[in-house]
Design a protein around this nucleic acid. Sequence first.
DNA 1: GTAATATGCAACTAATTGGTTGCATGTCAA
DNA 2: TTGACATGCAACCAATTAGTTGCATATTAC
Lengths: 107, 107
Amino acid sequence: MSMDAVFRALADPARRRLLDRLYGRNGQTLGALCAEMGMTRQAVTKHLLLLEEANVVVTQRRGREKLHFLNPVPINEIADRWIGKYERHRVRALADLKKQLEGKNDG
Amino acid sequence: MSMDAVFRALADPARRRLLDRLYGRNGQTLGALCAEMGMTRQAVTKHLLLLEEANVVVTQRRGREKLHFLNPVPINEIADRWIGKYERHRVRALADLKKQLEGKNDG
DNA sequence: GTAATATGCAACTAATTGGTTGCATGTCAA
DNA sequence: TTGACATGCAACCAATTAGTTGCATATTAC
């Protein structure tokens, strides 16, 4: 599961909204997820496919229905491996910024 | 600073690479950031503009040079407000997944 | 002033993306 | 088996995006 796929999956507001809805109620069908999205079923399908490819959503067939489940692991890997890196040195970066902005004001 | 702009800014590998390089050495000029990016200066400029619009990078002129600084605040806001939400209920979501996958195997 | 350096602006192209419509397939219920 | 329901597939369109080239502007050095 490439980190790039996860980042791109999260880039679209419609897809983040789908994740939010699965977060609120896990295991929804495609039909249920289409409601209130303001786009056609096929458009929603494509968004869900991107989320599946990023492994952020996992699916399972139940008869003629397709159930969608949130997989929080890749998102947390991003948080740990990428954002965590920035978090660890956030104070230093902010100090850099502050120093620079102060220099800007004082001359 | 819209959260959507930050997500989209992070979606491109070239832009994440630029952030990584600023993380390694803060306050670099456009010219310095162009090195080893494998694209023209104008392409790098466009990426940096997107990062600026997302407020993930802050700039300052020094004579004819433009210095670029990492601003870790928006990224940490995403971590806190969005990823944090998933993190808090990660165990529950993983339990849902596990249960579902087990049901898949057993019948 | 003139040349070199550092960046900015604009037009253009190619690829990707978000969305559509139309039709096909598979499953459940009567 | 027939009809209704849930999803899948494919072609197509419009908008956005990543990148290019060419030229303009501003600063520094001589």
